[in-house]
């Protein structure tokens, strides 16, 4: 394709690993992650920043990768669902979703997990209202949300307990 002539070089750090890529100027971050980097965790659904299924963190901020140009991510650090766990050890947010039964079809799950990670980084002890507000950009059609909200609150509590001794020291 002649468009390849117009590819732009970008440098990303994805899940802690440096990546140098050449992408079309119109390439979406979601497609670059899924097709070029084979990170299939982020999902495509609404194409319009409504559903949150494609949510990834760019420099710690939750963004919709379906409407985010890959070139805009140049020089930035990206976290996808594949980067949440440390080895085989689940991140507390992942653990909470499993334990609370907050996963059904799983299509919204990667976006929900990263949205939760961003929320808890920003607000380590959210109220239920905080969680509901934060989830306005994250749809789920299976669960009815109740168990997702419970999982997020449980993850916050678990994190609070985990970090409490650290503060004592």
């Amino acid at each position: 394709m002649d468009a390849s002539a117009a590819r732009e070089p970008i440098h990303l750090v994805v899940n802690g690993r440096a990546r140098d890529l050449a992408v079309e100027p119109y390439a979406l971050l979601l497609d670059v992650l899924r097709d070029d980097l084979d990170l299939k965790g982020a999902k495509r659904s609404c194409d319009s920043q409504v559903c949150g299924a494609c949510t990834v963190l760019v420099d710690g901020l939750a963004v919709s990768a379906c409407t985010y140009l890959a070139v805009e991510a140049d020089g930035r650090s990206i976290l996808t669902v594949e980067g949440l766990a440390e080895g085989e050890s689940l991140h507390p947010v992942q653990r909470a979703f499993v334990d609370a039964g907050a996963v059904q079809c799983g299509f919204c799950t990667p976006g929900m997990l990263l949205t939760t990670r961003a929320l808890l980084d920003e607000n380590p002890a959210p109220t239920r209202e905080d969680v509901l507000h934060y989830l306005r950009g994250s749809l789920c059609r299976c669960t009815g949300y109740r168990k997702i909200v419970e999982a997020i609150l449980a993850a916050a509590r678990a994190r609070g307990q985990a970090s409490a001794p650290a503060r004592v020291e």
């Binding site: 965790g41 689940l90 992942q94 499993v98």
Partner: peptide, 21 residues
């Protein structure tokens, strides 16, 4: 029993595969 889903871990780690994957 409220057994956790057998596919829960693959789904929370992004490893679960759907057709477009």
């Amino acid at each position: 029993q409220p057994v956790p889903r057998v596919d829960a871990v693959e789904k929370v780690t992004g490893r679960a595969r759907y057709v477009t994957d």
